[in-house]
Design a protein around this nucleic acid. Sequence first.
DNA 1: AGGTAGTGTTCACGTTCGTGAACGCATCGT
DNA 2: ACGATGCGTTCACGAACGTGAACACTACCT
Lengths: 253, 253
Amino acid sequence: MTSDIKSAARVLDMLELFSTRCDGLTLSEVARGLELPKSSTLGLLRTLHKRGYLVREDEDDSYRLNDMIRRDGFARHGRILRVAPPVMTALAVDAGETVLLGMPDASGLVRLLAKEASPSDIRYDIELPRKVPAYCTALGRVLLARMEPAAFEAALDSVPRAALTASTQVDRSAVIDAVEAARETGFAVVEDEFAVGGTGVAAVIPLGQGQPLAALGLACISQRYRQDPARLQAQLGGAISRIAEAMAGQGNM
Amino acid sequence: MTSDIKSAARVLDMLELFSTRCDGLTLSEVARGLELPKSSTLGLLRTLHKRGYLVREDEDDSYRLNDMIRRDGFARHGRILRVAPPVMTALAVDAGETVLLGMPDASGLVRLLAKEASPSDIRYDIELPRKVPAYCTALGRVLLARMEPAAFEAALDSVPRAALTASTQVDRSAVIDAVEAARETGFAVVEDEFAVGGTGVAAVIPLGQGQPLAALGLACISQRYRQDPARLQAQLGGAISRIAEAMAGQGNM
DNA sequence: AGGTAGTGTTCACGTTCGTGAACGCATCGT
DNA sequence: ACGATGCGTTCACGAACGTGAACACTACCT
């Protein structure tokens, strides 16, 4: 059998090292501890830092494990995956449309983590796990609306803005305007831009500090959405409140 | 800032994906979920499997997250790092020598995770974090004694067996004999092989299933060790029992 | 004030990896 | 029984990475 992939093995070494230390470690300490060249160590530390696994202290240039990673390991979005599904099931029945839970993924993408399909035979369905672009999906736009300006700019250009349907907004300024609107209203509605006949409506789930950014959305058949958008938006808002309350109730930060 | 290191980022993606799924995922499902080529996915899955992060089900070729990783994340040796130090402090005072806790690292190496220095001004001390070779250290030999034959053979040849002192055993057969002796007696004693004037004595900590392999050892000034080896070995044995009992008492598998 | 030591960081290039194409195999449908 | 499909796996080669050497900077000591 072939040997390990070097960087993959090293990143695990690094995380294991940090998990044995409560105080921070400098780049040089990590390099010595793992017997790596400093420049190789730097690349891996930057990757872990960028991904949110490590936090860097400004005062002494040391790194330490993100407290949430230390507590939950990889399952940092595990709690919301336990809390959200029952609420999503109820919403799917009430709204009659498919419910999706998504989180930011690589720049410009949304990772769909959970799904409750509509009970209707005619439905907008997807298979999990799945990633979708942010620029032309409701989940994506509300998540983009919560990003720092630099990350937002980068996200806009990280994924080619292809016209997936005749209605897809691909113009950069138009997408910015749509995200700005989502920021102001708290909702995003995307009609027929990602899939013909499909409308997405989504909002961010307001969670506390230290919690991962997540959004809930409805994936609707466009004709049904147009019949009563206010009802669907209200039902989505209600579900989001229930999830946020349940997460706050279990909070033990 | 430069972009992420591809494999490092991907291995995190993979672990996060598995942490959202209780049931297993096949290679193809992982590749689809993360939008990776199958051959790239295979390399990363093999690395994670080899490192013990993933378990592979024979019946359907699917992978799933190791239960211990799912529960503890990276801190899979976190519990012993909480339990052992108070016992090690007491042992350092009783024995008058430095106490070390070690675990297997890459093939042929031991990772030193915790240390209680001897209160004596004349002492055998090391800085953490640190890795030492297995072939010529007491901690290493007792850990080698617990390995499967194939892993043991590989470990013997993974690290060049340099003569660190005039007493270092570098002959392959002699090292095998020393490890065999450690297997039979439950102890390893290494006099002046790793450092002139330093003697190591170590034994494995008998922990339950699913617990990581770990060993405790004394790093003694050789002259002091020779004065009363039986006392030091007995004190080490007593500390190991206390650690094992404490770990069993907290066990909630 | 100047020299030394160690830090974090950059970069060019040799080394290693990532992966597309292809393979052997198992399963399923006709 | 045979063809189609999708699985896990292998391998050669272009692409990307790892890292030694060097740098700029900071802190400390004389």
